[in-house]
């Protein structure tokens, strides 16, 4: 009886969804492939798991016929180019790409477009004009950190900046955003900056090294993710007052924040890109196949964690992982509408 009820419930929801999204049935015979260049870190693993979770549900609901993930064995441009050409031959209607190179795959992407395949790139985007791009606005992410601090610290003060891996585009972008935010708010000064390489141990060593040369009144630490916990450990060891350290959604960072919040009401925020962005790309591809009018350039929303939703996000983050969120069809439509 219970299962019958479940089935009825499920069917009603499905019917409701069908009514709400009249176009959904049109893609039921379409096949979407994910071409991924690398799976060697926790972010990418979470990305693949999110893809698997959301797309298998979409397939069993009949939204699309198939949504298979392919990862190249080695993170190499030529290998991924061949993989994309193989996916064209396998007859997929759309290919969602996290690319090894923004330019090196353009020839294969063009082949795909010419063969009538829809190409959606995300995270590692491709520049070929016929493809769609779901890009991350890293600059805005850096700026948001400073805007948050400006709101929390109306009097301003000295900041410590922890940067990422030198020479990588992402590092330059986030840092540019931070500096833009500092210039715009006009109440902060960056007293020092170190490279934490997005890793807790490197950040801890780097911060411990620069602390003695910094003034005593550091009020905030702006970070790039993966470095907040290390910074906190270094500052704690130095015996200084704990400044507001912006976190980057890693499990250890959120855990530390929770401990501090429970112990002394510590307040901060945390921001990063959710690995589930692959599912956003999936829905965007589905919408394009559906005939929706989608602009070629879309922006990924950030996953921001604040004081009040910390516990909820921490509970959903596995140890050693990154806070994640899976996107729904409605989220994708929202993003598309926002870009119009």
């Amino acid at each position: 009886m219970k299962s019958l009820l479940k089935v009825t419930l499920y069917m009603t929801t499905a019917a409701g969804m069908l009514l709400g999204q009249s176009a959904m049935a049109d893609t039921s015979d379409k096949r979407i492939a994910l071409s991924n260049n690398y799976a060697g870190n926790s972010w990418r693993q979470a990305m693949l798991r999110s893809w698997e979770k959301v797309t298998s549900e979409a397939v069993s609901n009949g939204v699309v016929a198939a949504a298979d993930a392919f990862t190249t064995a080695e993170n190499q441009v030529t290998e991924q180019a061949a993989q994309i050409q193989n996916l064209i031959l396998q007859g997929y209607d759309a290919i969602v790409i996290n690319a090894a190179s923004p330019e090196g795959l353009n020839g294969s992407v063009k082949e795909a477009c010419d063969a009538g395949v829809t190409v959606v790139s995300f995270d590692g985007i491709v520049t070929e004009p016929c493809a769609w791009r779901i890009a991350v606005d890293f600059k805005q992410m850096g700026k948001d950190e400073v805007l948050y601090l400006a709101e929390k610290l109306p009097d301003g003060g000295q900041l410590l900046e922890i940067r990422g891996l030198a020479g990588v585009f992402v590092d330059d972008e986030i840092s540019a955003g931070i500096h833009e935010g500092v210039a715009e708010t006009g109440k902060f000064e960056i007293a020092g900056s170190v490279h934490g390489n997005w890793a807790q141990d490197v950040a801890q060593k780097a911060v411990a090294g620069i602390l003695p040369s910094l003034p005593d009144d550091i009020v905030g630490v702006v970070t790039q993710g993966g470095d907040g916990y290390g910074a906190a450990q270094a500052i704690k060891a130095s015996g200084r007052d704990m400044p507001i350290i912006v976190m980057g959604n890693r499990h250890d960072e959120l855990t530390w924040w929770k401990e501090q919040k429970d112990a002394n009401g510590y307040e901060t925020m945390s921001v990063s890109i959710a690995p589930g962005v692959s599912t956003l790309a999936f829905w965007v591809a589905q919408q394009i196949l559906d005939g929706a009018d989608v602009p070629k350039d879309l922006t990924v929303p950030f996953l921001r964690i604040d004081q009040d939703n910390l516990e909820e996000n921490l509970a959903n983050t596995e140890a050693g992982g990154v806070a994640n969120v899976e996107y729904s069809l409605e989220d994708a439509q929202e993003v598309i509408k926002g870009a119009m």
């Binding site: 030529t78 330019e103 090196g104 795959l105 020839g107 294969s108 520049t127």
Partner: peptide, 9 residues
């Protein structure tokens, strides 16, 4: 084939 290059291509 690729239309553009990459130092690691």
């Amino acid at each position: 084939l690729t239309t553009s290059a990459d130092a690691n291509i």
